[in-house]
């Protein structure tokens, strides 16, 4: 069951320059496993030290942030779009 994964510009160098990758997987975690198997350089950007989602990325399934679903256990259906977004932050502090 394939879903479309959108890769942000900053991570494309680790993904062979691709902006969009078709990956099989029934949950976001399984899709990430497939992606990391294909492109090991993505691992430190996607997975945190605790094995969960890295705090500097946000992941959406279609229009929903997976932090408010089941995080990496969020289930996927064929044709879903998984979008990986960098967390953009800073400030005067």
């Amino acid at each position: 069951m394939a879903v479309d994964v959108k890769i942000p510009t900053v991570l494309r160098a680790q993904a062979d320059g691709q902006a969009s990758i078709s990956v099989d997987g029934e949950t976001v975690g399984l899709v990430f496993d497939q992606l990391i198997t294909k492109f090991p350089g993505l691992r430190p950007n996607l997975i945190g030290d605790d094995g969960g989602m890295h705090k500097f990325v946000n992941v959406y399934v279609n229009d929903d942030d997976i932090r408010f679903l089941d995080k990496l256990d969020t289930k996927l259906e064929a044709g879903d779009t998984v979008t990986i977004l960098p967390a953009v932050a800073g400030g005067a502090l």
């Binding site: 946000n58 959406y60 229009d63 942030d65 979008t83 977004l85 960098p86 967390a87 953009v88 932050a89 800073g90 400030g91 005067a92 502090l93």
Partner: peptide, 13 residues
Amino acid sequence: SARTYSVASKDML
């Protein structure tokens, strides 16, 4: 915050 910002992820999307 007056000292930090984080772009809302929905706006990034």
